[in-house]
Every structure is written in C-alpha cells, then in structure tokens.
C-alpha cells in the first residue's frame, strides 16, 4: 500500500512540473515589446484600469534584438514598436498583421507628413509613435568648439571621451555618412572603408552603450556621444551644459511605429491599445516624458513652446536636407553583422 502511494506521488510530481504555468486566465493579457525608456509607464497602468486588460511590458535595446526574439517565436507579443527599416523587413517577411483602422479612430490625429512613408506606403501595418534623428550630444565645457562634422568623433583630442552607440545600423551608418556615402550603402568597398574607420576609432572610444549613454552624459563622464534626438532632449533638460547637433554630412532620420505581429490572440485589444496611445492626452504625456518628437498633431500643440520650437526635437527642413531614412538591406545585413563583430572584437 505504502509503495503504491509513493508511486502515485512521484507521478503526480512529474505531471505537476509539466502543468506549471498552464493556469487558466480570465483576464485578457497584452504583451507589449517596446524600446527601453520609451513610454511614460503610468500610461500603461491607466490603460489596464480603463479596459481591465493586463499589460505585460517588456523592453529591447536595438531593432535587431527585437527582430531576432520575435522571429525565433515563442514570445507571443501583441504589440511591437520597431523602426522604419525593421517594419519594412517584417512586412516583407509576412510577420505583421494588417491593422483595422476603423478600430483606431485616433489615427486621424497623426500628421499626414508621417503617413504613406516608404516603409509602409499604404498605412496598412503601422501607426507612427515617435520620430527623430541621430546626432552628436556634446558637453560644451569639454568640447572647445561646436562640432559640425562626424569627424569630431575621430579627433584624437577627445580620446577616451567618446561614447559610441552599440547598435550596428546606427554606428556603421554614421561612419558611412562621415565618409560621404549613403548610410544605406551596399557597396562592399564603402563598407570596408567604414569598417576600417571604426577600427581606427576604437582606441578613442570610451565605451559602446545604448541606454546608459544618458546617465554618462548627464554626469559629465564623456565629452561626446552618438545619440538619438529624444535622448539628447532628455539629457539637455537634466544638464544644461549639453547640446545636440546634427552634423553637416547629414544623418539618419527615423520613425518608430506601433505594429501588431502575426500570431497574436488579441488583435482587437491590441488595436484598442494603439488607439489609446493615440489619444491626445496620452500621446502628449509620452512625448513630454521621454523627450522624443511626436507625430501627433494635437499633442505637439500642447507641448511647451521651447520644445516644439527647438531644433533638437523638431528640426527644420534644412536640418533634414541631407538626412536619410534607413532602408531594409536584405541579405547585406549579414555583412553589417560581420563588420560590427569584427570592430567590437578587434
């Protein structure tokens, strides 16, 4: 008798190991995958309260990280916020759901400048969230004259005071720009030159970082950093010694947009969430909190004048003249991977 009981106990134990995590849910859960530091998190709680939907919020550091995780499957995200070229790639690979715009009436607030862009020409898959540029954030006390060119990042004067971005498309992109090429170059010669330039620059670089750049620059740990415009706005607000510039060679103009990946169980709720993010009040709070530029017409009107008139956050046409939007490079991306691995392990 005792032995029989013991057997049953062991079988139960085995089954219970398998059964863990298969509990029943009666509340809808939305899995949101966004960039780090890219939302006012109180907005999420407000959504949970208003619609009785639970949000599991998760963050990524680069588009490539996000893509690999979603592509590998098993992550079950309902909402993603990637950038332009990554959205194009995901559309081409059939990874995204078409949106039902009748569920997203607040889409009307999005400035038409941000509609029908190359990555989603018919506005079928994405709703713009934020936009911005890549540029140089510098400390006026540590850099004698205002930088105008990417070349300042190769200036030996600033050895060990330069922070580069640990994101392959951005870092290789600005190097191509510095050399006078397109940041969407597929030319092996030009890419090789960019690689050599990055290797040559490496001894001058203090560190390759992404989100840590803000703390470091605010604390005055480095003189120059490659940053996204919104991070620059945030840092300047915290430390008035800092300033941001889009170098004269031109830079990257980017758009981040909200999309729904294929395989979601809660498309309707995900669209509710997108619509919620496009409510004027919510879009305003997000833009104000994270410092990036909003494509939302009403939210922009509400932002303080000194932000919307600042050329950091809302650059003028002439600042953007030489800027390019990333395009998906397809199979050449492998080459970018190789270059970046080589630079970082040099």
């Amino acid at each position: 008798m005792k032995k029989g009981f013991f057997r049953i106990l062991m079988v139960v134990l085995c089954i219970s190991v398998l059964a863990v995590g298969c509990g029943k849910k009666n509340q809808v859960e939305l899995n949101v995958y966004n960039w780090g530091d890219y939302i006012d998190e109180s907005v999420l709680q407000e959504f949970e309260k208003k619609y009785n939907i639970k949000i599991n919020y998760d963050t990524f550091t680069t588009n490539e990280d996000m893509y690999v995780k979603v592509k590998a499957g098993g992550s079950h995200y309902d909402i993603l916020i990637p950038s332009d070229y990554m959205i194009k790639r995901m559309i081409d690979e059939g990874m995204l759901e078409k949106l039902d715009m009748s569920n997203i009436p607040n889409y009307k607030y999005i400035d038409s400048k941000f509609k029908n862009l190359e990555y989603d020409p018919n506005n079928e898959y994405s709703v713009p969230y934020m936009w911005g540029t890549v540029g140089i954030l510098y400390n006026k006390k540590m850099v004698s004259e205002k930088p105008t060119s990417w070349k300042v990042l190769w200036d030996k004067k600033y050895a060990k005071q330069i922070l580069m971005m640990d994101s392959q498309r951005d870092s290789i992109g600005i190097t191509l720009k510095m050399l006078g090429y397109s940041l969407n170059s597929k030319n092996p010669d030009e890419l090789e030159q960019a690689k050599q330039a990055l290797i040559e620059q490496k001894p001058l670089v203090l560190a390759y970082v992404v989100d840590e750049v803000k703390d470091k620059m605010i604390a005055g740990e480095a003189a120059l950093a490659v940053v996204w415009s919104g991070d620059a706005v945030y840092c300047i607000r915290e430390n008035p010694d800092l300033d941001y510039v889009i170098p004269e060679e031109g830079s990257n103009l980017w758009f981040d947009a909200i999309v729904i990946p294929k395989g979601t169980q809660h498309k309707k709720e995900a669209e509710m969430f997108i619509n919620f993010l496009c409510e004027t009040d919510i879009a305003y709070r997000n833009a104000d909190y994270i410092g990036y530029s909003s494509p939302h017409t009403e939210a922009v009107k509400r932002l303080p004048k000194e932000i919307t008139s600042s050329r950091h956050a809302y650059p003028q046409e002439e600042d953007l003249k030489k800027c390019e939007v990333f395009v998906d490079l397809g199979s050449i991306l492998k080459e970018f991977d190789r270059i970046w691995t080589e630079v970082k392990s040099h």
Binding site: T62, E64, D65, V68, K69, D166, Q168, K202, V205, L206, A207, Y208, V209, D337, T341, K344, S345
Partner: peptide, 17 residues
C-alpha cells in the same frame, strides 16, 4: 563598455543580436 568581446559576449551576440 561593450568593447571587450569575450567568448560569452560572442555567444550572446549570436543568439540575441
């Protein structure tokens, strides 16, 4: 600071990036 690629970083990079 991301400039010391060790074998662990290399593996992580292959899987995540």
């Amino acid at each position: 600071g991301g400039q010391y690629t060790l074998i662990g970083n290399l593996i992580e990079q292959q899987f995540l990036t």
